[in-house]
Amino acid sequence: MTIKEIQEEIVDEFSMFDDWMQRYEYIIELGKSLPIIDETYQVEENLIKGCQSRVWLHAEEKDGKLFFTANSDAILTKGIVAILIRVFTNQPAKEILDADMGFIDEIGLKEHLSPTRANGLVSMIKQIKMYALAFQARR
């Protein structure tokens, strides 16, 4: 699936919920389904700067596509990073760099997060794009 198709799928899923409490619960469930990051990657250099909670993000390239793993010490944040990983994992670096992030506004995520969590979300996206830029520069 393309990034756009995955984003549309997420928008559809979020539209099934009537209120934000249900959406928060869904985000938390997504976080619980996030595959555990290997402990060797849960190190200081993989911590995302700008997040109130601790978020570790690791990327590796296989066959021209990036694969991300992550973890967080906060359940809601873990769900947010799970959404981003779902969108960006198994995608080429160029597609990640070119991706429109409008789906975040479409599902209302940014406006329903505290300012510190919204900043964390921006930091997570920035880090994912930085990984993509680094991998693309190697080619």
Rank of each mutant, 00 (worst) to 15 (best):
M1T: 13
T2S: 11
T2A: 07
I3E: 04
K4V: 09
I6N: 02
E9R: 02
I10D: 02
M16I: 09
W20A: 07
Y26T: 03
I27W: 03
I28H: 08
L30K: 12
L30G: 11
P35N: 13
P35M: 13
D38E: 15
D38A: 14
Q42W: 09
Q42K: 15
V43L: 11
E45F: 00
E45L: 02
E45N: 12
L47R: 15
K49L: 15
G50T: 07
C51V: 07
C51N: 12
S53L: 09
R54P: 06
L57P: 07
L57S: 05
H58S: 12
A59M: 13
E60Q: 13
E61F: 05
G64R: 11
F67Y: 15
F67W: 12
F68G: 01
T69S: 15
A74P: 04
A74H: 11
A74R: 03
L76M: 11
I80Q: 04
I80Y: 05
I85S: 00
R86Q: 10
R86I: 00
N90L: 00
P92E: 14
P92A: 14
P92T: 13
P92Y: 00
E95T: 06
D98N: 12
D100A: 01
F103A: 01
F103N: 00
D105L: 00
E106C: 02
I107T: 03
G108T: 04
L109V: 05
H112S: 10
H112P: 03
L113I: 11
P115G: 13
R117K: 12
A118Y: 06
G120S: 08
L121D: 03
I128T: 06
I128A: 01
K129H: 05
K129L: 05
M130R: 15
M130Q: 15
Y131T: 06
A132C: 07
A134T: 14
Q136V: 00
R139T: 10
R139S: 13
